[in-house]
Design a protein around this nucleic acid. Structure first.
Lengths: 219, 219
DNA sequence: TTCCTTTTGTTGAAAATTCAACATATATTC
DNA sequence: GAATATATGTTGAATTTTCAACAAAAGGAA
């Protein structure tokens, strides 16, 4: 477990908890780690939402697939980040999303009841973790607002430019790589892939952006 | 303040707090109430996010207006419900949304710092409120998932039917009224109003639903 | 390298959305 | 009740998206 300390210390759930306490806390929480290959399902839509996940390395996508098989990508989670915490905290019966490994990754899973309710040892960190979860959920809400702001645009072009604008702001630079391939980007923006490719070509011809695979540059 | 006790007791923020303690707590929090006429702005996009709001009566809309003036409605908040709590908890610099009175309403506003951080009296309810906020934010996240599930559909028809399906589930009945007029429903579904009206007509002719103003019935 | 798979780009036709303009219906005000 | 304002429904044209099919490029495996 120790090799993940650096990642775990940056995890919002453990903010304000000192390294010396972390190992005991993880034990108390019954934390376990699992490895997943690319494209493997970490948590399955429709199943009970028992676990809060933490990405230790690699990355994962939060996806929703509708009745007709259309995939919608809600977000990407990267090392140190939590996922499925909202469903665990809201104690929903069944997960409304699946979590899929975006690349080979290691994941820590914690039974959410061990976080939300005091353990037998009544360890002192529950209050801190509740506060941390509250902060994290508030942050996640902002990301949803952002996604809605992007996808509420009516055209592929506007959606793409809004998305790239947010990425540029986040990276603090006009050039960056995105963690989506074309199909995934389309599924995040909720548009057609071929239409997205065509729009990228058009924007390139107009000198508005440059793009090579998942590298983008706003001009 | 006493006349709002019934509403406040149902407010997620005060769950688990007894009526006898509520008045003192509200005083401790420096809660104030304000009245707003229909269409008045309760909180303004771009301004600091100092306050958590509670709807006492009436209702309000959470809206976002983009560069071109296109309105997007994120959600509607009704009596007992919180709003702007995510921005307060995440301590963002400026609000990414406006909150608009949907009808004449009374609103309680609480400086979020009084909730998040212990007061001079160190009253015992902060922990409970933090827990309550965590639960509330988790619930709100589910609503965002729902909105994204609805608006990620590619056609006006599918968006409308997905929305009505969720409403029917929520109401536990196939007939219900929605708290949107046509333009607002269009702005929630992220579609064109006239196209929405046309789609409703079509669905009516096909015998799939009945609709009179904001009353809908799924057949 | 070569073969094979996957990803990305391109195109045209079909379908759907948006937009503008107007008709009709419903509320509101005096 | 009449007049006015607001909301909703209808239509056709322009634009855009989606869909399907294929071409081209990139990546991986042998």
């Amino acid at each position: 477990m120790k090799k993940y300390f650096e990642i775990l210390q940056k995890c919002p759930l453990f903010e304000g908890i000192e390294e010396k306490d972390l190992l005991a806390l993880l034990h108390c929480l019954g934390a376990k780690t699992e490895k997943f290959d690319k494209k493997y399902t970490i948590l399955t839509e429709g199943k009970p939402s028992k676990y809060i996940g933490i990405v230790l390395n690699g990355s994962a996508q939060i996806v929703q697939v509708d009745y007709y098989g259309n995939r919608s990508i809600l977000s990407v989670v990267e090392p140190s980040q939590l996922f499925a915490e909202a469903f665990a905290c809201a104690e929903v019966q069944s997960l409304p999303v699946s979590v899929i490994a975006n690349e080979p990754c290691e994941i820590m899973l914690i039974d959410s009841r061990r976080i939300l309710y005091s353990c037998a040892n009544n360890c002192a960190f529950h209050q801190q973790m509740i506060f941390n979860l509250m902060k994290d959920l508030a942050q996640k809400t902002l990301l949803f607002h952002q996604k809605i702001e992007i996808t509420s645009k009516r055209s592929t072009r506007e959606k793409l430019l809004a998305y790239l604008g947010f990425q540029a702001k986040k990276e603090g630079a006009n050039s960056f790589t995105v963690s989506f391939d074309r199909q995934e980007l389309a599924d995040y923006l909720e548009v057609d892939r071929s239409g997205l490719s065509a729009e990228i070509s058009k924007l390139r011809k107009e000198g508005i952006l440059d793009c090579r695979k998942n590298y983008f540059e706003l001009l």
